Simulated scan of single mutants.
Amino acid sequence: MKNEVTLIATATMGLEALVAKEVRALGYDNVKTENGKVEFTGPYSAIARTNLWLRTADRVKIKVAEFNAFSFDELFEKTKAAPWEEFLPENAEFPVTGRSVKSTLFSISDCQAIVKKAVVEKLKKTYHTDWFKENGALYKIEVALHKDIATLTIDTSGEGLHKRGYRPLHSRAPLKETLAAAMIMLTNWKPDKPFADPLCGSGTIPIEAALIGQNIAPGFNRKFAAEAWPWMPQNIWDEAREEAEASADYEQLLDIQGSDIDHNNVKLAEENAMEAGLFDVVSFKQMQVADFYSKGEYGCLVTNPPYGERLYDKKEVEALYKSMGQSFTEHLPTWSVYVITSHQDFEKLYGKKASKKRKLYNGNIKTDYYQFFGPRPPRRK
């Protein structure tokens, strides 16, 4: 059995470059970026390390095979030829999911059934049996067809990587932790500068900022599907967790505050910060945007306000955007401000043109990430 695997870190559209940068920072060089995914190779330890460390990826999958598939026969034969015996033990539970985009084989249920049958046929030869109980660890197989190219993968993550384990409770329109981390990583914030989110909801953005600021691995608080796989020795996971623990800088002092007009959200945010082990690191208070201020200078404000598409009345949202523009300009003149919203007239309502704009997806909502750069801090003598 070889000790190197090809992995795919899946990503929300628009975040591929960030995910690739994270993968390279972990020391994996053979990186290929495509729409919605970043492919790279590494030893088995890369499965543990990427699951623990990737802040902006959705999942990590093993790429088992990739080939052209124009007919069901071709899909069956090429799937059967793939090295499933390297990954699936005899008692593996291996459900098959699928998707098809711009491909001749468009029936997802048929593709799933054929892949399942082909894998069974391969394993029959390997294990010399006609019956598989599937009562062991979970190996979730996916067949993804895009422009007649079939990619077969096994999911190593289990639950999506946005499930950090610190947020059992959230507000009504939660921001995915992976997107919150991406929004912070797209700013000029450094841990020695103040950071704030004045519309913090259940606290996701301030908590992700604290994890980044103290270099805490985002997956430190959870388990992954591949931890139950017999061919992934426990010491690989132990070493990856030891590395994460040694890399964390718990002594790094941070000035991170979150606030919200709703006291229930503030309570939620405090509970989530406590769950993440960051209760003393991040501070939360009840406050409306118009009153938001900070004594700190040259800070970074990142926020995900309501968009007016759901939950809130459009007029209320537009009044909120005007209030944000006035408050931040008046109270935070040296700060850089970053706002994500799908509202087309945001700049007009905010009263200022963004220094830069970037397209991002919040779930299925197409949004713009407005970046207002503050003045450069004076050089230290």
Rank of each mutant, 00 (worst) to 15 (best):
P168D: 06
R164D: 00
G136S: 14
D130V: 06
I114R: 07
A118R: 13
M183L: 11
P198Q: 09
G158W: 06
Y166C: 13
P174M: 08
L186S: 12
T156D: 13
E134D: 15
G160W: 06
F132L: 11
H170F: 06
K140P: 11
M183G: 02
A118E: 13
Y127Q: 09
A144F: 15
P168C: 05
G160S: 12
L199Y: 06
K190A: 03
L152T: 07
E177W: 09
K140V: 07
L145A: 12
K125N: 05
A182P: 07
E142H: 14
S202F: 13
G158S: 14
S157Q: 04
C200F: 01
R172N: 07
P206K: 00
L169Q: 15
H170P: 01
E142Q: 09
V120E: 12
V120P: 12
G203C: 10
K125I: 03
D148M: 12
T126A: 10
Y139K: 10
K190N: 03
K116E: 14
R164G: 01
E159V: 02
T153D: 15
N188P: 02
H128V: 10
G165Q: 03
F195V: 00
P198Y: 06
K116P: 10
V115M: 04
A182T: 04
L169V: 08
R167L: 00
D197F: 00
L123W: 06
A144Q: 10
G201H: 07
S157P: 07
L123H: 06
E134N: 13
T126K: 15
M185H: 03
R167S: 01
I205K: 04
I184P: 01
G165L: 05
T178P: 11
V120Y: 14
T153A: 15
V115I: 02
P206Y: 00
L175W: 06
L123E: 05
D130K: 14
L123Q: 08
I141T: 01
H146D: 10
W131R: 15
V120F: 10
L175I: 07
F132H: 11
